[in-house]
Amino acid sequence: MRILHTSDWHIGRSFHGHATLDALRVVLAALTEQVREREVDVVVVAGDVFDSATPSADCYTLLTEALAGLSDAGAQLVVTSGNHDSAARLGFQSALLRAGIHVVTKPEQVGTPITIHDDHGPVHFYGIPYLEPAIVRRLWPDVRSQQQALTQAMTLIRADLAQRGGRSVAVAHCFAAGVEPTPNLEREIRQGSLDVVPMTVLEGPDYVALGHIHGRQRLSDRVRYAGAPLHYSFGEGGKPRGSWLVELDASGYASAEWLDLPVPRALTTLRAPFDELLTHERFADVADAWVCAQYTDATPQLDTMRRLQARFPFCATVMHTPEGVPAADGRTYAGRVRDARSDVELFDAFLVHVRAGEGATDAELEVIRDLIGEHALAEATA
């Protein structure tokens, strides 16, 4: 059996204020073509189908198109809800879908597999929706953490599998021990070490398809994260986008192959003085990329986004990250003002305070002297 493991579509998520639906549509179309070309039997989507518990109508339209396209390509689907999804809304959608598209959103479904057959017999797919401890406690009163919830779920799965026998796949959305999450991206579903799921908890199935981490990760041959199909932050820029093509033979796990997905628009982070960002030829080849611009001037520049977008139309964020800023001397602004011996020095003290230690330039001092002189002349003739 050929299984395509994907996750974290986050339909409806924006990228620094820019809509991503059209880009995601392109990527999911490429994934659908891979399913057709590779004759995939089952597509597994391991949670966070939507980015919001209240997705827009356009998000539902894209999901319906994607699932129908994958089904038309010849695959059955097993989809679980993640911490971003509304389990109730995603579950309602499942009742409207065609045969062969299975959506698991209720904790009551844990331990009851979706069984799909191939030439070697049955393969049992155990979907584990995101298990919020406060919600599943009505079923499992002792659960106080994600770790405990996943432990209970896998206990039910292993018990059911012991009776049924055969090959199996588990699908879950969690932090597993050993993962490297993308900084500032995955919204927390953990509280300290209690919600990191040990690898021993995931023992039993022939393959465990995980979601929640947005980068590809292999924790073992049979436990993997596929990551998100799009880049949703500049922190992900260097990570490939794609999915795992997993093969099960008659005895269980046989192999896994990474299938790359297209990146509709590359991400790049540029760091240089502001004028250099605007003019240097070495940045010419990233004019069509999403750009995170970090300018290193000692002082903030004016109208940075508009000026940068004139060269980089897809500049998405601008950061002031100064280099060579003088170390703070510990003096307060009040102290600088007291030490000023003239109006010109008073201006300079203000600039030193608000510009991280950089006082007035020679040109600025000339302007200040002119202004002070004109003001003094106006007062004298008033």
Rank of each mutant, 00 (worst) to 15 (best):
R216N: 00
R216C: 12
Q217N: 02
Q217I: 01
R218A: 14
R218I: 13
S220I: 03
S220A: 14
R222V: 12
V223R: 04
V223H: 09
V223W: 09
V223D: 06
R224P: 10
A226E: 03
G227D: 06
G227R: 08
G227L: 11
G227E: 04
P229D: 10
L230G: 07
L230I: 12
H231V: 08
H231Q: 15
S233E: 03
G235F: 06
E236V: 12
G237V: 01
G237E: 15
G238V: 08
G238H: 15
G238Y: 08
K239P: 06
P240G: 06
P240Q: 02
G242Y: 09
S243P: 02
S243W: 12
W244E: 04
V246S: 04
E247C: 08
D249K: 08
A250G: 14
A250E: 15
A250W: 05
A250K: 14
S251V: 03
G252T: 12
G252L: 06
G252H: 09
G252P: 08
G252M: 02
Y253W: 15
Y253E: 10
Y253A: 09
Y253P: 13
S255A: 15
E257I: 13
W258L: 07
L259Q: 12
L259R: 11
L261C: 04
L261N: 06
P262K: 05
V263C: 07
V263D: 11
P264Y: 07
P264K: 07
P264Q: 10
P264L: 10
R265A: 01
R265H: 00
R265V: 11
A266Y: 00
A266H: 11
T269N: 04
T269K: 14
T269W: 00
L270S: 00
L270A: 05
F274I: 01
D275A: 13
E276K: 14
E276Q: 13
E276Y: 00
E276T: 15
L278V: 10
L278Q: 12
T279G: 10
T279H: 14
H280G: 07
E281A: 14
F283P: 03
D285A: 12
A287S: 12
A287E: 13
A289K: 03
W290Y: 15
W290R: 06
V291W: 03
C292M: 10
A293W: 08
Y295N: 02
Y295G: 04
T296P: 03
T296Q: 04
D297L: 02
D297A: 02
D297H: 06
A298H: 09
T299S: 11
P300H: 00
P300I: 01
Q301A: 06
Q301P: 01
Q301E: 14
L302F: 10
L302R: 08
L302Y: 06
D303L: 09
D303G: 00
T304V: 15
M305Q: 12
R306A: 15
R306M: 13
R307N: 05
R307H: 13
A310H: 05
R311G: 05
F312A: 02
P313E: 09
C315V: 05
C315T: 09
C315M: 02
C315R: 06
A316Y: 03
T317N: 00
T317S: 00
V318N: 03
M319P: 03
E323N: 05
E323T: 09
G324R: 08
G324S: 01
V325S: 11
V325D: 08
P326L: 08
A327K: 02
